[in-house]
Amino acid sequence: MQAEPSLYFALVTVLALLIPFTMHLFFLRGCGLFRETELLQKGVFFSVLFGLLPLAALCYFWATRVGSNSTTGVIVSMLYLLLVYILAGYVYFHFFNMSETARRVRLLIESSKTGTLKKNDLPRLYPHQDIISIRIERLTALGELRLSGDRYVLGNKALLLPAKLIFTLRHILFPNADF
C-alpha cells in the first residue's frame, strides 16, 4: 500500500524541524568550526543559514516525487515549510543562547552539582562583576559594541531594534517594572 502524500508532507515537516540542530552539530563536531567563544552565536546563525540547503533538497524531493498536483498547492506548502524552518531556527537559536548566557540556567547548573547552594556562596561562584564583563566581551565579539579609546560605542546596531522591541513588550506587560 502506498503512503498518502499528506503523510510524506508531515514527515518532511518534522525533518525540517531537526535541520538547525543537525547542522550545528555537524559544524561543531564534524568540522570543528565555530568553537571559539566569540563565534558560538555566529555558529548557530550560520547553521540555520546553511540548513536552507538540506531544506531545499527536502522541498525538491517532496515537490517532484510526492507533492501536490497543483502549482498553487506546491507553492503554499513550500511557504509553510519555509515558515516552519525559520521558526525552528529562531527557537533553536534561543535554546542555544539560553544554554550559553542565561543566568537562571547557570544558577540551576551550579545548584544541581551538589543539590544545595549557600546563598553566601553565590557572589564567589557567580560574581556580579563577571556577569557584566562577560556580556560586554560577548557584545564586543559580536560587533555590537566597539571600543573607542576607553569608551564603548554602538557597533553594527543589529540588536538595537530587537532591544527596543523587547523593552516595548516589557513596558506593555509590566507597566510598573524597573527598566
Partner: peptide, 27 residues
C-alpha cells in the same frame, strides 16, 4: 512553533536582559 518562539523570547521581556539593556544605554 510561533508560541515556542515567543516563549523563548519571554525571559528577556520578563527579566530585562542585561545585554539588551547595555545596548540601549550605550545607544
Amino acid at each position: 512553533l510561533l508560541s515556542a518562539a515567543y516563549i523563548m523570547s519571554y525571559p528577556p521581556i520578563q527579566a530585562g536582559c542585561p545585554s539588551l539593556k547595555i545596548i540601549l544605554a550605550v545607544n
